Simulated assay, not measured.
Amino acid sequence: MCNHQPHCPSAYASDRASAHVTVSHPEQGWSLLCNGVILFDDTGLLMPDSTVMTPHRGLVAA
């Protein structure tokens, strides 16, 4: 799906969320990345094979 250079990471690479945004719908809370991943505002992901990855958030200091 990625037509630019350098190519974006694949949907199954650990840095998949760093791919370029091809479609953005901030009013709905999601963006489609050029590797086929749908990235949600809460950091959850929908993979091209319909696998769901739950949101990942950093640790909060007390």
Rank of each mutant, 00 (worst) to 15 (best):
V37R: 01
H7L: 08
P9W: 10
D42W: 12
H56D: 04
S10I: 00
L46K: 15
P6T: 01
D41K: 05
V21Y: 02
S24N: 13
A62Q: 04
V23F: 06
S18I: 05
H4L: 15
C34M: 13
D49W: 09
D49I: 07
M47R: 02
D49E: 06
L32P: 04
T22H: 02
N3F: 13
P48K: 03
P55F: 01
A62P: 07
L33G: 00
P9L: 11
T43D: 04
M47I: 12
S31P: 09
A61L: 11
D42T: 05
S50Y: 15
T51N: 05
G44T: 00
T51H: 10
V60I: 09
A61Y: 08
M53P: 01
G36N: 05
Q28D: 12
S50H: 14
L32G: 02
M1L: 09
L33E: 00
A13P: 01
H7E: 07
S31V: 09
V37C: 03
G29I: 11
P26I: 00
A17G: 07
A11G: 07
A11K: 03
P48A: 05
M1Y: 09
P9D: 13
A13K: 03
A19R: 01
S10P: 09
L33M: 02
F40D: 00
G44E: 00
C8A: 11
T22R: 07
S14C: 04
M47T: 04
D42G: 05
D15C: 14
S10C: 10
V52Y: 14
V52L: 15
L46A: 11
A13N: 10
D49H: 10
C2M: 02
G36Q: 10
A11C: 09
